[in-house]
Simulated assay, not measured.
Amino acid sequence: MSHEALVLCRLDELVEGQARGFDPLGTGKDSVFALRHDGEVRVYRNSCPHLEVRLEYRKDRFLSVDGRQIVCYAHGARFLPDSGLCVYGPCLGDSLSALQWHAEADWLVLEADQLEAYAS
């Protein structure tokens, strides 16, 4: 892997209906999260488009109880897991920032340059 690749986890560690947060830049907070929805892996920046606050209310708690929607626990906004589109709440019609990833030897890998703008 190149020095610009950020390895998040093994792909088989992402379970359908659950999400996991990651701190790939070592800032002390989860700046991205990944989930598996309908068999597909998605990775998003951990920031609500409403006020740019973190989504989870505690470690790895990004989804509704039934695992069908991403929830911003600060505002109650709800997002579709497959697109990041807000379907309920103060940012209706906005979307979460999706991140491009690739699999490398069964690992979920991000390119660091996608996160440079969010390092501060």
Rank of each mutant, 00 (worst) to 15 (best):
G26W: 01
T27Q: 15
T27F: 00
T27C: 10
G28Y: 07
G28S: 03
K29L: 11
K29S: 13
D30C: 12
D30T: 14
S31H: 12
S31G: 15
V32Q: 05
V32R: 09
F33G: 13
F33K: 08
A34R: 01
A34C: 06
L35S: 05
L35P: 03
R36H: 02
R36N: 01
H37E: 06
D38H: 12
G39C: 06
G39V: 04
E40T: 14
E40A: 14
E40F: 04
E40R: 12
V41F: 01
V41C: 05
V41W: 00
V41G: 04
R42M: 03
R42T: 01
R42E: 04
V43H: 01
V43T: 01
R45A: 13
R45C: 09
S47P: 02
C48E: 06
C48N: 07
H50W: 03
L51V: 09
L51N: 06
L51K: 10
L51P: 00
E52H: 11
E52L: 10
V53T: 15
R54P: 04
L55P: 04
L55V: 06
E56S: 13
E56K: 04
E56P: 04
Y57T: 08
Y57A: 09
R58D: 12
R58T: 12
R58V: 11
K59L: 14
K59C: 11
D60Q: 00
D60N: 09
L63I: 00
L63T: 00
L63Y: 00
S64G: 04
S64L: 05
S64T: 13
S64P: 01
S64H: 09
S64Y: 11
V65H: 11
V65T: 14
D66C: 07
D66G: 05
G67V: 08
G67E: 12
G67N: 08
R68P: 02
R68Q: 15
R68K: 15
R68D: 12
Q69E: 15
Q69I: 03
I70V: 14
I70L: 13
I70E: 02
V71E: 02
V71H: 00
Y73T: 07
Y73H: 15
Y73S: 13
Y73D: 10
A74W: 14
H75N: 07
H75I: 06
H75Q: 07
G76W: 14
G76V: 13
G76T: 09
G76E: 13
G76H: 12
G76D: 13
A77R: 01
A77L: 02
F79I: 14
F79A: 07
L80D: 09
P81Y: 05
P81E: 10
P81T: 06
D82N: 11
S83G: 05
S83E: 04
S83T: 15
G84P: 08
G84W: 09
G84F: 09
L85C: 04
L85S: 02
V87C: 09
V87G: 08
V87S: 07
Y88V: 10
Y88W: 14
G89Y: 00
G89I: 00
G89R: 01
P90K: 03
C91H: 04
C91Y: 02
L92Y: 15
G93D: 11
G93M: 10
D94I: 00
